[in-house]
């Protein structure tokens, strides 16, 4: 925030730079342990390495959607209404979609390796895909052309509708799926210990650091966007005025 206040043109400050560095270190360690040092799983083989990204991403996606709903609810309650809550909801909504995307891609790759197909109508996979589309809708509402107040309120309501839908969708799909196919497919979470558990832990650390880093930067970008929106008109008027003042001089010059 300091960088922005002092007229700097970036969103980085010393703490976020340190945080960024820590994220890079944790990611490098995750790559080292997850890809090189940890052993193959007895049954899953190398596919187990996807887990070190997949599980933390899923956790962070749910955390993001929870924060998005929290920010939306606090914005809708008149007593706690602050612009910041709307920004938090918007930023975490975007992060949730990002992490859900990672969950879907790693889940499908896992499926291709373990089950021989990218897509099965597994309850978890299907409900995650629906969740992804739901929040894409939320992001669409956030980008709609409207006044700040109108957009903030409408997107807050959409966020609440979406978070309520998450358990309902999961329940319905789960139920539908178990009635459909009686065979149980290979679970995504084998027993892990030792270096594998440590790699998963590193996955959580790297993921969480990346989440906080992205959250801070995206939030600051959102503040800058709002400033641009409010100051943009003033700046445009000032520019127009300068132009009209400059015109007579050029006319005289001719």
């Amino acid at each position: 925030m300091k960088a922005m206040a002092s007229g700097g043109n970036g969103t980085g400050t010393r703490p976020t730079r340190v945080l960024g560095l820590l994220t890079l270190v944790a990611t490098a360690l995750l790559a080292l342990y997850g890809l090189v040092l940890s052993p193959d799983d007895a049954t899953q083989g190398s596919a187990v390495r996807l887990l070190y990204v997949h599980v933390p991403a899923a956790t962070l996606a749910y955390l993001s959607f929870f924060l998005c709903a929290l920010g939306s609810a606090l914005y809708l309650i008149p007593r706690t209404r602050r612009t910041g809550w709307d920004r938090l909801a918007g930023v975490t909504g975007e992060l949730g979609v990002l992490f859900t995307g990672i969950v879907l891609v790693t889940g499908m790759l896992w499926g291709k390796i373990s089950w021989g197909t990218y897509w099965t109508w597994d309850a978890r996979l299907t409900s995650t895909a629906l969740l992804f589309v739901l929040y894409l809708g939320y992001l669409a509402v956030r980008r709609m052309p409207a006044t700040f107040e109108s957009r903030a309120r409408r997107s807050a309501v959409v966020s609440l509708i979406a978070i309520i839908d998450v358990p309902v969708v999961h329940w319905a799909v789960d139920w539908w799926n178990t009635l459909h196919q009686k065979t149980t497919i290979l679970r995504l979470h084998p027993e892990i210990s030792g270096l594998m558990a440590f790699s998963l832990f590193l996955g959580f650390v790297a993921g969480f650091l990346a989440f906080v880093w992205l959250l801070l930067h995206r939030y600051r970008v959102a503040v800058l966007e709002d400033m641009l929106e409010s100051r943009g008109l003033e700046a445009a008027i000032a520019e127009r005025r300068r132009e009209t003042e400059a015109v007579p001089a050029t006319v005289v010059g001719r």
């Binding site: 979406a162 839908d165 969708v169 319905a172």
Partner: peptide, 13 residues
């Protein structure tokens, strides 16, 4: 375009 994108996934249950 917004309405179907919001409405259809929500009512999938």
């Amino acid at each position: 375009t917004l309405l179907p994108l919001l409405f259809l996934p929500t009512v999938s249950p």
